[in-house]
Amino acid sequence: MAFEASELTLDKNGKIYHLGIGPGDIAETIILVGDQNRVDLVGTFFEKITFKNQNREFSTITGTYKGKPMSVVSTGIGTDNVDIVLNEIDAVVNIDLENRKEKDEKVSLDFIRIGTCGALQEDIDPGTYIISKYAIGLDGVANFYEVPYTDDEKSAMDAFIKHSKWGDKLNYPYIKRGSDRLREQLKEGMEEGITTTANGFYGPQGRAIRIPLSIPDFKENIRTFVWDDTRATNLEMETSALYALSDALGHSAITCCLALANRYSNKFMPDYKDQMMELIETVLERLHH
């Protein structure tokens, strides 16, 4: 059965609608970044760039790092954009776009998110690299799909709901584990922990400026959660959907974040370009080996 034009949306050139990419434009190792300007920053480490496209907040380049083909794609902020990026990249490699039919042989991709976050533990200073063993999704995106969950993930979700005294008026949370293979490949020298993915920057991360929070102890309930001898380490806005959708589609994913803020010491690092460049180079070098 072919996918209808309104379901699998393509542009006038026959490429996937939002990203503007087609077969041959994307590598099997893909770096995801939030900020579209960070795409070119990663690209400065490539010896050559073979493809480049920009549409809305979605910027894409493909090239090689020390001979290894890699792509870099910006998602923008939030899991709603991750939903677009993951589905569209998968469609490009696993659907015949011309005939609008799913391919018999599937390609499994590696997604590595390089982002920024806020630390949840007092001993994690701004400038620390955090790698996400698990992601707690407060966003609800995965709940619209038939996502497979392991017994470990189901038990973790039940434990989190009980620990956090989860409210009925909030999105039902979910928990997904990142790729063990990619985490082992990248984690040396990084803080390993549980990442909470929020569906906003202010209230959903326990920040209140002029509107009072409906759950004042929300951030503390997240911070004190522990599972699999792993503590909650950070808050950000993309990883849960990345883990859930990549797993459901047969891909592997991991997130490495640079902590810009500590939500308990109230420290903040506004100028982080040098530390981000170091994280990018570290990830590229470890992916190369």
Rank of each mutant, 00 (worst) to 15 (best):
A156I: 04
M157Q: 05
M157H: 01
M157Y: 00
D158V: 00
A159C: 00
A159P: 00
A159I: 00
F160P: 00
F160A: 03
F160D: 02
F160W: 03
I161S: 10
I161T: 08
K162Y: 15
K162W: 15
K162V: 11
K162P: 11
K162A: 14
S164E: 03
S164Y: 04
S164Q: 05
W166V: 04
W166C: 05
W166N: 06
W166G: 05
W166H: 13
G167E: 13
G167N: 09
G167Y: 11
G167R: 10
D168Y: 14
D168R: 08
D168E: 14
K169Q: 13
K169D: 14
L170E: 04
L170P: 03
L170H: 05
L170R: 03
N171D: 01
N171R: 06
Y172W: 09
P173M: 06
Y174L: 10
Y174W: 12
I175D: 01
I175H: 00
K176I: 03
R177D: 09
R177Y: 06
D180N: 12
D180G: 07
R181H: 11
R181T: 14
L182T: 02
R183I: 14
R183D: 06
R183Y: 02
E184C: 11
E184D: 15
E184L: 13
Q185A: 10
Q185C: 11
K187R: 15
K187D: 10
E188D: 15
G189I: 08
M190H: 11
M190I: 07
M190R: 12
M190K: 13
M190Q: 09
E191S: 14
E192M: 15
G193H: 02
G193S: 10
I194K: 01
I194L: 02
I194M: 04
T195L: 07
T196F: 12
T196L: 15
A198K: 05
A198Y: 01
A198D: 09
A198T: 14
N199F: 06
G200W: 07
G200L: 09
F201T: 06
F201Q: 05
Y202H: 09
Y202C: 07
Y202P: 06
Y202V: 04
G203H: 08
G203P: 03
P204C: 04
Q205C: 08
Q205A: 08
Q205H: 08
R207I: 10
A208D: 13
A208Y: 12
I209C: 06
I209H: 11
I209Q: 08
I209Y: 12
R210Q: 12
R210G: 07
I211Y: 12
I211L: 08
P212I: 02
P212M: 05
P212R: 09
P212A: 05
P212V: 04
L213E: 08
L213D: 06
L213K: 05
S214F: 12
S214V: 09
I215D: 14
I215L: 13
P216M: 15
P216S: 14
P216R: 14
P216Q: 15
D217E: 10
D217A: 09
F218S: 02
F218L: 11
K219F: 03
K219R: 14
K219D: 07
K219M: 12
E220F: 02
N221V: 04
N221A: 08
I222V: 05
I222Y: 00
R223C: 06
T224E: 10
F225W: 03
F225C: 11
F225D: 08
F225G: 05
V226C: 12
V226R: 14
